[in-house]
Design a protein around this nucleic acid. Structure first.
Lengths: 205, 205
DNA sequence: ACTTGCCCGTGACAACTGTCAGCCGGATAG
DNA sequence: CTATCCGGCTGACAGTTGTCACGGGCAAGT
């Protein structure tokens, strides 16, 4: 019996995926989480009790903690469970960061439903399940942005001013503007809005 | 037995929803479509054979034919089956257009999974199933923005400067800034980025 | 110890943004 | 006809943004 934990913010989709996996006799859905933070709590707590999930299937874009951050944390704290990313976005940057975060699988929501159970089994056997089309693209374009630039850009994209961002990240306003300027330059655009859009589109956020 | 047809472009989600509905003993998933056009073909053909679906559950954003267009067509050709929209987007503008197209239900993918089956039954009995939170907004929050403000905001949201926008719309730079200022004020935010995000989120663009 | 690189910060400057008060011409209505 | 509204424009002002040059601190290599 493979123990699976599901993290996905859209309740309807979460419930439906759960129903899908419950049809498989060798899979056991031991938990569902509506955001990354909840998934982390559940995983960690269960792991301490010795009945943690074998596989975490997670979306990327979720409130509080993204799927990528969740994967990273699971690896850092050595929880010992595998992670499969299940997302809408075929962005090379996402896949790359997912691999850096040590995930074992990366599936698209566009893929046929049967692939999910198959991927879970494959990963559980110690294999990897990476969408083949995407795997190719991932090593072509490279990611110019560093962590700070990403953070700052993300906040700027939500409409925060340099001052706001500085407050939130405990930096000075000038530094924030420098990072933004850097990011704008690296991406070859002319203001923060375009930088945000481009970075987002390329999956660099 | 309620006959249901499912239209949703993401294969994984489509399969999962299908699994979810198959758990209900009084529901029968008689077809799945990956886009609006396919859903229309299936619905129409089955209707001619006298075994058309009672309910079509459809996403909005799909290739070829959107869920809204599908709903409209089903009503125009008097197929005689009900439509339930199932979408990510809580935009009052979408709901309004959906109602105009004669749909019987409008659910969010954020809603709990159980609601889908309930909504289907309710609509089959002749009722309506509109997300209550959304229903309020749709007729309360009426659109504060005028055409110019919308245009300008849309372009600003793509990263264009006041000067760029002025060029594109054949206005003066100052006028563009005035419109932006107006829009920012009406939406109660503090810069163009937030204004864009809010307007977009409310479906006003 | 010395470079090299990175992170964070400063100060200054030009450009852009957001706000406001007010002008003009056309349409509409009383 | 005149009053009023509306779309568009202007000019001015303070605040924010984008750029640049530069300085200090810290870590890793050499």
């Amino acid at each position: 019996m493979i123990r699976v934990l599901l993290a996905e913010d859209q309740a309807m989709v979460r419930g439906a995926l759960s129903a899908l996996l419950k049809l498989e006799s060798d899979l056991d859905v031991v938990g569902c989480a509506a955001d990354g933070e909840e998934a982390w709590q559940l995983t960690q707590r269960a792991a301490l009790d010795g009945n943690g999930p074998d596989i975490v299937v997670t979306d990327i874009e979720m409130p509080k903690l993204t799927g990528l951050e969740l994967a990273q944390r699971i690896r850092e704290r050595e929880i010992g469970c595998k992670v499969i990313i299940l997302t809408t976005f075929a962005r090379p940057g996402f896949l790359r960061r997912a691999l850096d975060a040590g995930v074992s699988g990366y599936l698209l929501k566009d893929a046929p439903a049967e692939q999910l159970a198959e991927a879970i089994r494959k990963v559980h056997r110690g294999g990897r399940a990476i969408d083949p089309q995407l795997a190719l693209e991932a090593w072509s374009g490279d990611d110019p942005l560093n962590d700070r630039e990403r953070q700052v850009l993300r906040l700027a994209g939500e409409g925060m001013s340099a001052g706001d961002i500085a407050g939130q990240l405990h930096l000075s306003q000038g530094t924030v503007r420098n990072y933004l300027s850097e990011a704008i330059g690296k991406l070859g655009v002319s203001n923060r809005i375009e930088a945000y859009r481009l970075a987002r589109q390329k999956g660099l956020l």
